[in-house]
Design a binder for these strands. Structure first.
Length: 290
DNA sequence: AGCCTCCCCCGGATGC
DNA sequence: TGCATCCGGGGGAGG
């Protein structure tokens, strides 16, 4: 499950390889075509597959940017600028190879959905096992309004105040704190893993009602989320199930996690418990987290 | 207009 | 072996 640190890792690894290069052509999988013919939009959103292939053709990849859990490929053609927005969903992964046979993990090679042929001859490959990811070609963020509603980057100066303000709105104040910190309109890039970790480190029960936390506690929590995200970025992210950096690379943050996926509390050894909050499994220590 | 609830998208993993 | 069930970011539909 790629969250902010995992996406940051992908962007850092991909950036030096693809920035400045030109996309000569794009080829989408039969699965993408079939899905669109059936009235669905597997992976490619808001354009027919054949249109998408034409739109991206001959674009120069000017810059790569991570924004929340999205990767923005800033594209340029004849002084016109566009953005190819990518979300990895549950299981998206990028590869840069000379031939797809170099993708040794079969579960990714079996689910290749877009092959961008670069002018350099390299192939920029997007694989996605569960197809929850997306590729969306836009001119500006307003072309896809949800992108305008994203919270600031957590490491931005304004992010903590934004979180505090949002969390005080009625629709968030009465919800469980874990659901609120995982909401991209409150904090960017914090998913289940890092929400679970930050709450555990501060001994906050994930089901605590948000308004129940005072301003100081919320600020402390915000800072802890930033700390956990930063620690994970520094560790190359958490490689759990289908997350890979480019070309199958793995991070080491999964070894540093204290609560996510744990059966026992590392502090008091009590058995952990799992409840569903906002539709997501939430693991916590019933002894330590109140 | 904005909020809420429901539902969808999938294949791998798990369990019977 | 075969089948049903579960999981989950994010957004779209409809009330």
């Amino acid at each position: 499950m790629p969250e902010l640190p995992e996406v940051e890792g992908v962007v850092r690894d991909l950036r030096p390889i693809v920035e400045g290069k030109t996309i000569e052509s794009v080829s989408l999988s039969d699965v993408v075509y079939t899905s669109h013919e059936a009235g669905k939009q597997a992976i490619v959103k808001n354009a027919k597959p054949s249109q998408f292939e034409l739109l991206v053709r001959d674009m120069k990849i000017d810059k790569l940017e991570r924004r929340s859990k999205y990767i923005f490929f800033h594209l340029k053609k004849n002084d016109e600028r566009f953005i190819l927005v990518n979300h990895l969903g549950m299981s998206g992964a990028w590869f840069v190879v000379n031939d797809v046979v170099e993708i040794t993990e079969e579960k990714f090679r079996k689910h290749i959905h877009a092959i961008f042929t670069l002018a350099s001859g390299e192939l920029l490959v997007y694989a996605d096992i569960r197809r929850f990811g997306e590729l969306r070609f836009i001119k500006e963020l307003a072309d896809h309004p949800p992108l305008l509603k994203m919270a600031p980057e957590p490491f931005d100066e304004s992010a903590c105040d934004f979180f505090l303000t949002q969390s005080e709105k009625p629709k968030f104040a009465k919800k469980a704190i874990k659901e609120v910190i995982m909401d991209g309109q409150v904090i960017s890039g914090c998913g289940n893993i890092y929400a679970t970790e930050a709450l555990f480190k501060l001994f906050i029960h994930p089901g605590r009602v948000t308004s129940d936390l005072n301003r100081e506690k919320k600020m402390e929590l915000f800072q802890m989320i930033c700390d956990v995200l930063q620690e994970s970025i520094d560790s190359g992210g958490s490689t759990i199930s289908d997350y890979r950096s480019i070309n199958g690379g793995a991070g080491t943050m999964q070894h540093r996690l204290k609560m996510y996926g744990k059966k026992q509390c590392v502090i008091c050894e009590a058995n952990t418990e799992s409840i569903v909050i906002g539709g997501r499994t939430s693991t916590y220590c019933p002894q330590c987290q109140k």
